[in-house]
Amino acid sequence: MGAKSLKRRPIKQHNPEPQASMASSRRKIGSHRKVSVLLSASLTIAVIGLFAIWSYSRHNFESGVSYEMGRVVNEFPHDSDAFTQGLLYAENDTLFESTGLYGKSTVRKVNLHTGKVEVLQKMDDSLFGEGLTLIGERLFQVTWLQKTGFIYDRDNLSKLQQFTHEMKDGWGLATDGKVLYGSDGSSTLYHIDPSTFKVISKQVVHFKGHQVHNLNELELINGEIWANVYMTDCIAKISPKDGRVLGWVVLPNLRQELIAAGNNGIDVLNGIAWDSEQKRVFVTGKLWPKLYEIKLLPIKKSFEEGVIEQLCLRNPFRFTT
């Protein structure tokens, strides 16, 4: 891992974050995938100013794209040592979670209300756990920097099978029960056959002419793929048919409030879970002490052109040996 290096290909000048700042904050290389909890000064200013600029000159939202914030309706305890990579809700207020970091990666069954880990499967120290999803009685998980994945029994988390997929890397997983949707940290959304692990189709995720890079943890909600965009406080709502961004959920308040309360060791927003029966959305982050149930509130006022690009889009990352 020490031999890995990170290269970037510039995109349009909508991202004010200096290259040096991104290099220092993006540390998903080496024995740890820990990143800085403080984003660049320009990003912080953009987040804080998101609502202030509404009173100035405005531009209309892109037609058909929704813009929403999240209001916290419930808070639940979350293991602050869990480097959350994959998250999903099952019945009876049960969560399944995949955690990362070498030597600390796990798959776990968690009680929503108490945050207690009820069943835990520790992964080999050479593996870095990533996205997780559930089809029937089987949990599917991918791993970082490898094309290897695992299938677990949902009851006791025993390992049932190892598989090889065709994505360039393993980041996020979601499903509609028939197809696996996968991300590899690029702007590509993969459709994968869960029986053969062959790619059925794929789309480039795009917003206003820009590719949306660094797609991370995934969840399927009401026919949309929701994706954490790595190193942002944003969730992209994506059409699985054509890769178009249908909307943005912007959640800077969650991380900022945790930091303000003294949680300086937290990492980025990552982890989306959906309770389809009670229509509840849950989110958390890497090393966060809390998991939140949020209610989405539409942002009805328009804001200056380029703000979403500043908050939610990042340069692509390339890994070479």
Rank of each mutant, 00 (worst) to 15 (best):
R255K: 15
P240A: 01
R58M: 07
G49C: 11
S126G: 04
F140Q: 02
S158I: 04
K208C: 07
T133I: 05
E257Y: 04
Q141T: 10
F197C: 01
D184Y: 06
L157Y: 09
L101R: 05
E305N: 12
D79I: 02
V110H: 07
N156I: 09
V73N: 04
V199I: 15
R9K: 12
K159F: 00
N60I: 03
G131K: 08
L258H: 11
V73M: 01
P289M: 14
S24M: 10
P77V: 08
E305T: 13
V281Y: 09
I29L: 15
I29R: 03
V35W: 00
S63N: 13
V73T: 09
L120A: 01
S31R: 08
P77S: 02
T99R: 09
I192A: 07
E166A: 04
D267Q: 11
Y102K: 11
L297G: 03
S5C: 09
Y56V: 01
H78K: 11
D155T: 11
Q161G: 00
Y190I: 07
K198I: 13
V37E: 14
H213N: 08
L296F: 14
S63D: 12
D184T: 03
Y56D: 12
W171S: 01
L160G: 01
S66P: 02
G136T: 06
H78T: 07
N111S: 12
L287T: 06
L297P: 03
G209R: 14
K34H: 06
R318S: 14
D169R: 05
L134S: 05
S183Y: 11
G86Q: 01
T164H: 10
W171T: 00
P77E: 08
M231R: 05
N111L: 01
G243L: 09
R318A: 11
L296R: 13
E17R: 09
L218N: 00
G185L: 04
E293M: 05
M231Y: 10
A52H: 13
D125I: 00
H113K: 15
V119D: 00
H113L: 12
T284L: 06
V204F: 07
A82V: 06
Y190T: 04
G2R: 12
D79Q: 03
K28D: 12
G223K: 05
E91H: 10
S36Y: 04
D125F: 08
L39R: 15
